[in-house]
Design a protein around this nucleic acid. Structure first.
Lengths: 344, 344
DNA sequence: TTGAAAGCGCTACCAA
DNA sequence: TTGGTAGCGCTTTCAA
């Protein structure tokens, strides 16, 4: 039978519209239901092999791609794990961590999505994320408070996990114990016979959630030992480092915990240019155990922070999703080790 | 008329279900349409102030957050710009670029979403991204071919922009001209009197799309000058660098273009440990102009690559979205400058 | 083995 | 000024 296109009616699909499952059904000569069964390999329903083939070929020919939003709207839930991307670049370590985490969550059939909630904070940020109706949210840093967590949970997020330095009410927490990082650093320097210890505190915004606890940890390590701790604000540029180095002898310090390896490299260079001998006059200690520390001379001592296996975090997320009513878990990453090289 | 709740029907909303606009409407005593008008500040429709207040209060009380998927399903389009996150960490420069781009696109009212299409390639990756029905896709590297672009366009993406080293049919392209980076490097070293030039080619997978053109560029610069170019495979670890340095005198090179600043630092350290004097015996040239280059001694010469202003890229995306039928634009970033310091 | 139809949450048209 | 309602694309019961 010859098809006669009805006038003014879209007999065939409009040229540049996106193919839907209905289009596939039409082309295959079956119903939309059948298309859904075939493409999702629904076990409960038996579809004859010839039909399956016709459907698949039709889908192929049209270049059909299912519509994720429509699907999860219908399903009432999604497998999307949302990770607000931090606006401050926090270093290469973090990037690797994200990648591994994505991979681990992918294995559990979650789709990880990073969403730049740039210049949104607290409840506003939470609301913006909640619009996407993720099944779980991983919040790095301390970008959100208890009320933000509440917003997310009310919007259907079955798990909220904070990755920051401090716990948030109602959310699971993976606590990076930066205080103990500082404590390790302070204890190491003290054990090496240092008594007047400087601690670099980056002036860059957004880093203080890490640097403050580290400073506190050094203070605690030196507490009651007669040693002293001095706070050293530093911007990540040569001028700032040179200024700090210029007044180094006035400061009378015999050691410095430089926040991380990159700041350590910056400061160490400035000190060497000032003629300060390392480690004889001043010990320098970094953190993060980056490659560059091994390339410096003297080789940089550093505090290595063993990030949690991303698989563990992925499993925490999965557990939380399966049992959203469970008590929030609190895991503390306290595994920091001093890698002693030559600079301390 | 008194409402009599039908038996077995949820008269009020279930305790832990997510509030919808219907719930807000019910609580405010208005229709869903009115709720929509109020919350979206629809200009065409006038709603009395008391009604607006009632609606807003109801929304507030319920903690209502609109459902982005439902909204864009209804609208037939979204403002989502999808950026597949590269699985290979490509350095701090890139991270900053992403952040700025997110910001710039945010100003134009797009929502940037990074999606880790981990271990998916070509058409498969394209299909996974297409399920999200983004209005535009920014593809870094060369993760996708013309057929992948076609899949995305058929699924409604109004703009596909590749950020890689080479153009892809059907997509807009922001071409990083790594060949000319290599050419600048080669020309600089040649001008400094170097004739036997090594070029580091990282062995890490995924970096060859950058390193190959750079090598070719050096070759072109030396072509016909009587100078020679040697390919130097190198892994990013100390052992590999030490091995390379150990046979340095056999290689008989008087200069090396080390792919980027990080590889340059690695190799330079290994060479210095071997007693090779820099730059007297061997000139070393990096790329990317990272901070660390300035902190090395001798200070590292480098090729600075001026990334396009993220605002420009954001505007390219916006243009393409507004006029999806337009010819693909091809922009080439050729702005590479040699920053001459002490190592060359 | 297949199809018809309801409905997820939302907005925009048309009517009142 | 407000409400009724169709329908975006999909899955899934219920019927045939």
């Amino acid at each position: 039978m010859v098809q006669i296109p009805k006038p003014a009616a879209p007999a065939s699909t409009a040229p540049h519209s996106v193919p839907t499952s209905a289009d596939v059904a039409r082309l295959a000569g079956v119903s939309r239901a059948t298309v859904s069964y075939v493409l999702n390999n629904t076990g409960a329903v038996r579809i004859s092999e010839p039909t399956r083939r016709r459907v698949r070929e039709a889908a192929e020919e049209l270049g059909y791609v299912p519509h994720a939003a429509a699907r999860s709207l219908r399903a009432g839930h999604s497998r999307m794990v949302l990770m607000p991307a931090p606006s401050v670049p926090v270093g290469p370590l973090y990037g690797r961590f994200i990648n591994e985490l994505q991979w681990a969550l992918g294995r559990l059939d979650y789709t990880v999505v990073q969403h730049g909630g740039v210049d949104l904070h607290g409840v506003d940020a939470a609301r913006a994320w909640a619009e996407l109706r993720p099944v779980a949210v991983l919040v790095p840093g301390s970008a959100i408070g208890p009320d933000g967590v509440a917003v997310l949970r009310r919007s259907g997020a079955r798990a909220v996990v904070t990755l920051g330095p401090e716990p948030v009410d109602g959310a699971h927490a993976l606590l990076m114990d930066h205080e103990s990082v500082g404590h390790r650093a302070g204890a190491h320097l003290h054990a090496r016979g240092r008594r007047r210890i400087g601690v670099v505190v980056p002036e860059e915004r957004g880093l203080d959630v890490f640097s403050r606890p580290r400073l506190a940890g050094v203070r605690r390590a030196l507490d009651g030992t007669g040693g002293t701790v001095a706070e050293l604000p530093l911007r990540y540029d040569e001028r700032s480092a040179a200024r700090l180095a210029a007044r180094w002898s006035d400061l009378g310090l015999d050691a410095v915990f430089a926040y991380n390896d990159e700041y350590a490299m910056l400061l160490m260079r400035a000190l060497q240019d000032e003629g300060v001998r390392i480690p004889e006059e001043t010990a320098v200690l970094g953190a993060d155990d980056l490659m560059l520390g091994r390339l410096l001379r003297p080789r940089l001592s550093t505090v290595r922070i063993d990030l949690p296996a991303s698989r563990d975090l992925a499993e925490l997320v999965d557990r939380a999703v399966r049992d959203p009513a469970a008590e929030p878990e609190r895991h503390t990453v306290r595994a920091a080790t001093v890698v002693h090289r030559e600079s301390s």
